[in-house]
Simulated assay, not measured.
Amino acid sequence: MAEINWQQLLESVVAAFDCSTGTMHTLDKSTNLLVLQAYQGIPPFLLPKMQTIPIGKGMAGIAAERRKPVEMCNLQTDESGVARPAAKETKVEGSIAVPMLLEGELYGVFGIAKPVPYDFTEEEISNLMKIGEEISRYVRANSAQVS
């Protein structure tokens, strides 16, 4: 099986949903941390805070914990405490973090966002979950080959 080109994969998802930024993390089962694999449109000074994300922290961590998408119409005005304070530095507004699940098992999380307030439709969320499932198939197949 070919190595996964995380950057190309993320760029395709970001473009398909007309977004400006995105991140893709995989789950490191030995540490139970989400590890950054690819990013687009993220200010360089934020990258150290995004390298690893604990389950339950920030949008990606909560999406991983709940195994459900976590969405914000406007990250800039959100006061729920779900988004980490540094997330506002991305200058994005409409954002969603989607768990990558296959048969109930978590393989990672990806997030995409727009520079304007936006609510993702049920159809978009369903499509994003399907994308996460397909990515998980590749992750599982690749990790099976490595083991």
Rank of each mutant, 00 (worst) to 15 (best):
A2G: 01
E3T: 06
I4R: 04
N5F: 04
W6R: 07
Q7V: 04
Q8E: 14
L10N: 07
L10D: 06
L10V: 09
E11I: 11
E11Q: 15
S12V: 00
S12G: 05
V13N: 04
V13Q: 03
V14S: 08
V14Q: 08
V14F: 08
A15E: 14
A16C: 04
A16H: 07
A16Y: 01
F17S: 12
D18K: 14
D18C: 07
S20I: 12
S20Q: 15
G22F: 06
M24L: 15
M24S: 10
H25W: 15
H25S: 11
H25A: 10
H25L: 10
H25D: 10
S30A: 15
T31Y: 03
N32L: 08
V35G: 00
V35T: 09
Q37C: 12
Q37R: 15
Q37V: 05
Q37H: 10
A38M: 12
Y39S: 14
I42C: 13
I42S: 14
P44V: 15
P44C: 11
F45I: 06
L46Q: 06
L47C: 05
P48T: 13
P48K: 10
K49T: 11
M50F: 05
I55S: 06
K57P: 00
G58D: 03
G58R: 04
G58I: 02
M59P: 02
M59S: 09
G61T: 08
I62D: 02
I62L: 13
A64L: 02
E65S: 14
E65N: 13
E65P: 00
E65H: 11
R66Y: 04
R66V: 01
V70N: 06
E71H: 10
E71R: 11
C73Q: 08
N74K: 06
L75G: 00
Q76D: 00
Q76A: 02
D78F: 00
D78W: 00
E79Y: 02
E79H: 01
R84V: 07
P85F: 01
A86G: 03
A86E: 08
K88M: 02
T90G: 01
T90S: 01
K91Q: 14
K91T: 04
V92D: 03
E93W: 00
S95Q: 09
I96T: 02
I96M: 08
V98K: 03
V98S: 10
V98A: 06
V98P: 06
V98C: 08
P99N: 13
P99Y: 12
L101Y: 10
L102S: 11
E103A: 13
E105A: 10
E105H: 11
L106C: 04
Y107P: 01
G108H: 02
G108V: 03
G108R: 02
V109L: 05
V109A: 08
F110S: 09
I112E: 03
A113I: 07
K114T: 14
P115V: 10
P115H: 09
P115K: 12
P117Y: 07
P117E: 03
Y118C: 10
D119H: 05
E122Q: 13
E122P: 03
E124M: 07
E124C: 05
S126R: 12
N127C: 13
G132L: 09
E134I: 09
E134N: 14
S136E: 03
S136A: 14
R137N: 13
R137F: 15
Y138M: 14
V139P: 05
R140W: 05
R140D: 09
A141V: 15
A141G: 02
N142S: 11
A144M: 09
A144H: 07
V146E: 07
S147Y: 13
